[in-house]
Amino acid sequence: MNENDTPTIEQQRATIAELETPVIQVWEGVLALPLIGSLDTARAQNMNERLLERIVETGSEIVILDITGVPVVDTAVARHLLETVSAARLLGAEVLLVGLGSRTAMTLVQLGLDLQGVTTRITMAKGLELAFQKLGLEVTSKTTRAVDGTEG
């Protein structure tokens, strides 16, 4: 590696840091955080800070943390996730953990981590459904309603 490479690497590192933890507002009061790739301590801290700031900024009550894209959930990753859940709760927001695969779920059980006190759902869609339910919202299909109307 020559000396000219260093700024580029720094730049790329910064870009990756920005890309890796997007916090998306999917609805008023609902934030989504799709995690992709492995979660180390530095990344978890970065994610935590950004998430908490966004919760305060947007006044969101619910955060859907999607770990579909996290290949391996070991004790360290689980601890980071639990820290995120606790910190968000202290601000007054609830974290729904979604996208646990069957392998992840069984790994966690075998590690003795039952994630007590954390609400989990299998997919992002199920998580969003629960979020709407908690906010007292309902999603109905226009077509179904029309059919019901003609029949009833």
């Binding site: 908490l52 820290e83 606790s86 910190a87 202290l90 601000l91």
Partner: peptide
């Protein structure tokens, strides 16, 4: 609660 305070408490 401020985000920094929440992080500190959890840590």
């Amino acid at each position: 609660m401020q985000p920094a305070v929440a992080i500190t408490l959890v840590e």
